[in-house]
Amino acid sequence: MNEYGSKKYIIYLIMVLAAAFFLIPLYVMLATSFKPFAEASMQTMWNLPSYISFDGILEAYARLFPQLRNSIILVVPATLISAILGSINGYILSEWQFKGSDTIFALILFGMFIPYQSILVPLVRFLQSIGLYGSLQGLIFVHIIYGLPITTLMFRNYYSDVPSALTEAAQVDGAGILKTYRHIFLPISIPAFVVVFIWQYTNIWNEFLFAVTLTSQPSQQPITVALNNLAGSQVVQWNVQMSGALLTALPTLIVYIIFGRYFIKGMLSGSVKG
């Protein structure tokens, strides 16, 4: 930092101001969540609570518990299955390329950029016809399908950094596609799986469009839909609304705090590096 001289302080000032900008919503959310009912009014929204009260959190937890549980039921299988399929796809597309495999890969990738509005009505009709519309199972299925492009991309990029000598050596030993995957690629995939798990977990947890269009009963809704309903209600206390936002944000925020490095890796691999 020495080369900055006196500018050093200006740079620090900008960085601190930027940090304040990023922390304002967090402050409002936390300060309001821990206020007692009596203090959670509009006139005091910028004040700290006079004492820490868990009324809001407990009330929000009681209201949102079923959907919190739904989100967990949704996220775990959807993350696992889309990651496993993505790993196999990525392995084939990077190690066993055939004529046209790059085109297939590009066509797969396009699936992660489309606005989902453009497939939504046929999707609803399809789920209705197989009896999965409105259910968590249907939502799990949808997240697996539309998660495949990103998981395939992440694993393909990861495997293309593996030296090809490894695959060739396995071939010399007579190992086929599946054996090479199981004995060579799968064991070295753990870092990639961690990145993909965290990325899929965060995205599926946070997703809203599929959740709001494919589930109608509160008993099947994930937390994001429930939060929107809670926060859209005029009769719910402010501290309960902000506590609801906090409860929705915490599960991904905690993972981000613990595994931030992997989260950033996942985020960057979404930008289709060559």
């Binding site: 740079i11 946070n206 809203f208 994001t224 939060l227 929107n228 609304q241 929705t248 993972v255």
Partner: peptide, 30 residues
């Protein structure tokens, strides 16, 4: 790499881990 860069970086980046639904709820309030 100024002092505390790691903490700053995490502060700037944490909104990426949060749902748009949470962002919308809180910013609407603000």
């Amino acid at each position: 790499k100024p002092k505390g860069h790691f903490i700053f970086q995490n502060i700037y980046l944490f909104p990426m881990a949060i749902s748009f639904v949470v962002t919308g709820t809180v910013w609407r309030w603000i």
